[in-house]
Structures are given as C-alpha cells and as structure tokens.
Amino acid sequence: MASGKKRKNKAGSQEFRNTALSDALQTQDMAAVAFALRHGPTVVPLLRHGSRDDPRDAGEVWTYRDPNTGDVALLLFSDATHKPETLPPAVALQSPEWLLAFLATHIDQITTVFFDIAGPHAMQATPADLIEALGA
C-alpha cells in the first residue's frame, strides 16, 4: 500500500488504491501499467462482496455488457475514488495473481478492459495484452 494519507472505502475500513497504477495511467505508458499490475493490487467493482467465512470467495465481479453489441468490458480502477457512483458500490482490492486468473478464465467473454474509465486518465487494453503483461 502507498504511504502517506490513507483513503478509505465507503465502508471506511481500508485503503483501496494502487499509486503506481495511477501514475502509469497518467503517463499512458503501457510498460509502466504492466509493471504496476504485476506488483500491486487492482480495484475491482463487485456485484456482491465475498463471504468473510470463505477466503476463496472473492465476491462477484461486475462487468459491463453493451446492449447493442453484447460485448463485455471489465472495468478496473487504480483508486476506488475513480469509480463512478453509477456503478455498484462494492469494490474489492485484488492481487495480480487474481487478475491473471480472472482474465484467463474469462478471455472468451471479455472483449476489452478499461482502466479508470471515468478518468482522470482512462486507458484501454485487450484481455490478451494484459495476460501477456501479467505473465512477463
């Protein structure tokens, strides 16, 4: 976690951010984004929280399905404060290993991945590009 002032999630319990990812998105440097993803957590929107009694239950990830094309997008955030209020309120802080496994499992369904879609420095990548970046 980043040092300095801590930001709290809506529940007020812990910091939900990856400063290196935020910095990499600001420069739009894919190599820096890949490094940040390999070495830090990612904020993921959830439809439902995981069970506190089952550490294997990470919750249900929220994805966006375009009503016109059926394309599915995964939205990821460098900081929970960048998540639009219109998305479900729950978030999870997921590890690089979790992200790699999730993308590999759903590569046939997810067509694109957006980072900080509402800004301040949005970026887009394909699941295949991210899997390659996470494996490097």
Rank of each mutant, 00 (worst) to 15 (best):
L130Y: 00
F115A: 01
A11W: 09
L37A: 02
T105K: 12
E85N: 12
A58E: 10
P67T: 07
A125N: 02
T63L: 00
S13K: 15
D23L: 14
A32R: 04
L47E: 14
A32E: 01
E15A: 09
R7W: 13
T86L: 13
P127D: 02
R7I: 14
N68P: 09
A118C: 10
H106N: 08
L46M: 03
A24P: 02
F16H: 11
I107T: 08
N9W: 09
A31Q: 13
G135Y: 04
T27K: 07
L25K: 02
I107A: 14
S3G: 14
A104R: 06
V43F: 10
L74R: 03
L93I: 12
L130T: 00
P88T: 03
G59Q: 02
Q94W: 13
W62H: 08
P45T: 04
A136N: 15
D23N: 12
V33A: 04
Q26T: 14
A31I: 10
R56Y: 09
K6H: 11
E97D: 12
P67Y: 07
W62N: 03
G50V: 03
R48A: 15
A101E: 07
D108L: 11
A58W: 14
D29R: 00
R38K: 05
F35W: 15
K10R: 14
D71S: 10
H121C: 11
N68H: 15
D116T: 00
A125V: 07
G50Q: 04
P84I: 01
L75T: 04
T42R: 05
S51Y: 07
T86S: 15
E85G: 11
P88A: 02
Q14I: 13
P67K: 07
N9V: 06
F102S: 03
A73D: 13
L134Q: 00
A90P: 05
S95D: 04
P89Y: 02
V113T: 00
F16N: 09
I107V: 12
A31K: 12
D57N: 07
F115H: 00
L99D: 01
H49W: 15
P89M: 01
L74P: 02
M123N: 08
G4Y: 01
A73Y: 07
G70V: 03
S22Q: 08
T69V: 06
T105Q: 12
G4D: 02
L93G: 06
L74F: 03
H106V: 00
D108N: 09
V72P: 05
L93D: 01
A90N: 11
H121G: 11
Y64K: 08
Q124E: 09
T86V: 10
N68S: 14
S13T: 15
D71K: 10
L37P: 01
G12V: 09
R52G: 15
F35Q: 12
L75H: 10
E15N: 05
P127W: 00
T111D: 15
L75G: 05
T42M: 08
Q124A: 13
T126K: 06
V44L: 14
L47Q: 13
N9I: 07
S78L: 03
A101C: 05
A24Q: 00
D57Y: 10
L103T: 01
G40M: 04
F102T: 02
A104L: 09
L87M: 05
E60A: 13
A128C: 10
T63V: 06
L47N: 15
R17C: 12
T105N: 10
T63E: 05
Y64W: 11
F77Y: 06
